[in-house]
Amino acid sequence: MRLIGLKNCDTCRKALKSLAVAGQIPDVIDVRVDGIPAADIAAIVGIFGDKAVNRASTTWRGLSDAEKEGDPATLIAAHPTLLKRPAIERDGAWTIGWKADVQAKYLGA
């Protein structure tokens, strides 16, 4: 299991804490420190399309209108903090965010 996120993201911290309590310790990829592998960006955008972009982020608000119209994979590659977080991969399957449906998948709730 891998979790792609930010160490200072509240949602990512909640996810990591909940996963640890459930006995699941993912490998963590911090987008600011480690970046996001191109293959992972391609897989995430291939599944979620433009929903993979976090439009509530400070980074998004700082983009020009022209940049906001760009390809999601290109945007995330150029600005890794635009990835909706956390992105979790387990056994080749991806989820994004930490809403009830994602929590149920990983925590069995």
Rank of each mutant, 00 (worst) to 15 (best):
I96W: 04
T81L: 11
G5E: 12
I29D: 03
P72V: 10
A93R: 15
K68F: 00
K7T: 11
G70W: 12
G23V: 02
A15W: 11
G35D: 04
V53S: 07
D50Q: 14
V33P: 13
D10Q: 02
R90Y: 01
G35E: 05
G92F: 12
K51Q: 13
A38D: 14
I29T: 13
G62C: 05
G23H: 06
V33L: 10
I47W: 00
T58F: 07
A22Q: 10
V45R: 09
I4F: 09
L83T: 05
K14V: 00
D27S: 11
G46P: 02
A56M: 08
L82P: 15
S57V: 04
K7A: 09
L3C: 03
I36W: 01
D101K: 15
T59S: 10
I36K: 02
L3D: 05
V53P: 02
T81D: 09
T74D: 14
V102G: 10
V45D: 13
I96E: 04
T11H: 04
I47A: 14
V102I: 15
K99V: 00
D10C: 00
D40M: 09
I36E: 05
T11Q: 07
D27H: 06
M1G: 09
H79D: 08
G70E: 15
T59D: 04
V45Q: 10
I4L: 07
W98V: 05
D30F: 00
V33E: 15
R13A: 10
R2S: 09
K99A: 15
D50R: 15
A38N: 13
F48K: 08
I41G: 06
D10H: 06
D71I: 03
D34Y: 07
D34L: 04
A15N: 06
H79K: 12
T59Q: 03
D91N: 13
V45I: 10
P86K: 15
T58G: 14
D40C: 06
M1T: 12
R13I: 01
P72T: 09
P26I: 10
K51Y: 04
G35H: 03
E69D: 13
A39N: 13
P86D: 12
N54I: 00
A38G: 10
A56Q: 11
D91V: 02
K14S: 10
G5C: 06
D65V: 04
L82H: 07
H79S: 03
G49R: 12
W98D: 03
K17H: 15
D50N: 15
L3Q: 05
C12W: 00
A15M: 10
D65Q: 09
A42H: 12
S64V: 02
C12Q: 08
D30W: 00
C9V: 04
K84M: 10
D101M: 14
S64E: 04
A42T: 14
R13S: 05
S18F: 12
L82R: 08
G62P: 01
A22I: 03
V53R: 07
T59Y: 01
N8D: 14
V33C: 09
A66W: 02
E89A: 11
R85G: 05
R55M: 03
A66V: 11
K68A: 09
V28S: 08
